[in-house]
Amino acid sequence: MMLPDGYPDEALYSIIARWQIRTGVFDLRSTSELLFGRESRRPVLGIQTGIADLVEKGSMSADEIIYRHTLYPYYKGFRKWLRMNDILNAPHALWTDLERELRLASCPLCIVSDFENFGEPYWHRIHLLPGVMVCPQHNVMLITHCPMCGQSIADSKRAYQLTPTYCPAGHSLLNEIRNLNESLLTFAKDSQLVLFSGWNGIGAADLQQVYADVLTERVIPEFEAYPYKTQLRVQRSRFNIGSFLKNEFYFEIRNELISQFGQEFLDSLPLRPFQEGIVRYRNQRYEHKKHHYDWLYRISFRPIDVYSAPIAHIVLLGFLFGSVQNFFEMTAAKLELTGAASEVAATMEIESNEGDDYY
């Protein structure tokens, strides 16, 4: 039995689950052996390796599988160890922080739409992304646990499972809950844009330069108005606008971000909480400032290879530009980052039009 073609934005995990239904092969070891030629494959939500083996089992090309049915486009600009050769041929799965921050989730209205258009529901990639709690298409809350009994709707770690319409206790999963939080919807749409565009050439180094330019522009008036003692420190070359931005002004930026998004929303994201205080080492001769380990501080001021979680960049771009879409538009018009932003906008428009045909 050939591997079925994927539906729009269908996760590869979902395609393999549908293959199991058609073949009647549900044992995980047998599934791995038949599809990948190995018995060690375990279900993967994010980026499955061994794609070259799957190409031989169906009609989809390697690029189609990787770019349209895995989360590779979402992560590729921020994980240097993601090599195309590994995704095509590696004998092991990429089990790292990627899988730990993913979970199965479904939208009740997407399930109904999938039944109407394709005769069966499936897992959508956009619903699996970290931090996405709202369907960007329907603005309803995604379901990961039954609203009635609290049971998980599926376990992706042990088996390939189809999108359920009932929880294990028999409660319907088709009752939608409308989202009233605008930040959740904006974040979901920004995550969808990133997934569809794949950042298109805009990497962590480009973004960090953007952050430096924007934040420096914002801090100049504050720096010039700082107390006279700071000016003395500047004259003695012990203090400059960069150190002011990373220390005194950083907390103002952080508080503004919390005020804009709300502490509850930020706490719901798989990001390390903000920290305060100082830890001293070696009889207080050296001190460690805890806020230097904030995700906001790390993506803004630390070396680019230290911390590169796409979700953190999506939040910060939303804070500085209103949305990722606004950033791409402003980038195309002003910053001209290798022409990537205009390509992203065109890609997003194509994907959006394709989506209209299905929803």
Results as ranks from 00 to 15, higher is better:
1 M>Y: 06
3 L>I: 06
7 Y>H: 15
12 L>F: 04
12 L>C: 03
15 I>Q: 03
16 I>V: 02
20 Q>F: 07
21 I>N: 15
22 R>Y: 08
23 T>D: 09
28 L>S: 13
31 T>L: 00
38 R>M: 10
55 V>K: 07
56 E>N: 10
58 G>K: 00
61 S>N: 06
66 I>V: 05
71 L>H: 15
72 Y>A: 06
74 Y>I: 01
88 L>T: 05
89 N>H: 06
90 A>R: 07
100 R>E: 14
101 E>Q: 15
111 I>L: 13
116 E>H: 06
118 F>G: 12
127 H>P: 14
134 V>M: 00
135 C>A: 03
136 P>V: 00
142 L>Q: 15
145 H>Q: 08
152 S>W: 06
158 R>E: 11
161 Q>A: 14
173 L>A: 03
175 N>Y: 08
177 I>V: 10
181 N>Q: 04
190 D>S: 12
192 Q>K: 14
194 V>N: 04
196 F>K: 10
199 W>K: 02
205 A>Q: 13
205 A>Y: 09
223 F>W: 07
228 Y>E: 14
236 R>F: 14
239 F>D: 04
245 L>W: 13
245 L>D: 11
256 E>R: 15
264 E>C: 10
265 F>H: 11
265 F>M: 11
266 L>I: 06
268 S>E: 06
271 L>E: 01
272 R>I: 03
277 G>F: 00
278 I>Y: 07
279 V>L: 09
279 V>K: 08
285 R>G: 10
287 E>S: 15
290 K>P: 02
293 Y>C: 04
303 P>L: 00
311 I>R: 09
332 A>H: 13
333 A>I: 12
335 L>T: 13
337 L>A: 09
340 A>T: 03
346 A>Q: 13
347 T>G: 08
350 I>F: 14
